[in-house]
Amino acid sequence: MKRTDRTREGWYERFLRWAGGEEPDGPEGPEDPERQEFQEYLEYIDAHGYLEFGAYRLMRWKERKEKGLIPDTAPAPHHEAAKPAQPELPKRRPGRLRQQVKLYRFLSVAVTAVLAGIFLAVALALPTFGDRSAPAVNEVARRYLEQGPEETGAVNAVTGMILDYRAFDTFGESAVLFAAAASTILLLNNPRRRVRTFRGPDELTNLLGRRLLPVILLFGVYIVLNGHLSPGGGFSGGAVLGGGLILASLVLGEERMEQLLPSRRTTRVTAVCLLAYGVMKGYSFFTGGNHVGWDVPKGTPGELFSGGLILPLNICVGVIVACTMYTFYTLFLEGEEE
């Protein structure tokens, strides 16, 4: 399995090099069948407009098969050998597939229309938008708003809710982020293709980016630290910080950024923050669901150092989100070959 993957990649890389106009050498001489096919493909898209290479190969193969140029035992695209003719292929009537496609389209439109109709009827029957007596505005929201500042120490009710009343939920969200980053690393990380070509920032990026970068990073830090006092918090501030890191990578260059913040370190920092979050919120396991009995000093609501554990939790979430965004960026950037 692994081996076929590798050859496929090699093939793709070679195509990229050929597309860059590199001259054939060694075993990749002009008589190389793959190279010939690629040349034909280039001519074809010059003449007929763009077609994806996969679609092109499929089309060519079908053409040749229909003409009888290749017997049925001939290789399918990508492969060295193929089965003899399919037994069930001739059974299909020619118009059949088209009919099925039509039916599928009709059915999907019909299902969507019915769903939309039901939703619309429900939406019109809901309590009026902005109605104060709607059942959605119930005692839960009232409790969060009225008792929130005393119970959590956070002035921002949303932050107080997601990081104190429902902190376990947020822990799960952070874990989901971490899991998504981990699976993206598994999918895209390729140690063989570490080589990066960076052309350096152009003048405009340099000029604007260098001035904007500190402001954006500072703004992100501000949002994270003031999560319990003003709109924002770990998630929003982390996203702004992640955007700032991406801008830094654009302005400073990826090599410099790789020295400052290697991908190994971001993963480690994320894991540490996740663990710290778990430890900080884990005491509820021992004290009971309402985390009664072990009071973290709340401080005066409205000051920076208030809200008990909300500030460190916000920092943890912010770091996790920022690192994840930056990791996504570096992963999607890797394997660039011009």
Binding site: A19, G243, I246, M325, F328, Y329, F332, E336
Partner: peptide, 24 residues
């Protein structure tokens, strides 16, 4: 911050990688 910046950037990077063959 998230959708207009990060997600769009990821889309662009994916498109750029995918257009590797389309580049020429």
């Amino acid at each position: 911050a998230v959708w207009a910046v990060v997600i769009s950037l990821l889309f662009f990077l994916t498109l750029r990688k995918i257009n590797g063959l389309k580049g020429m």
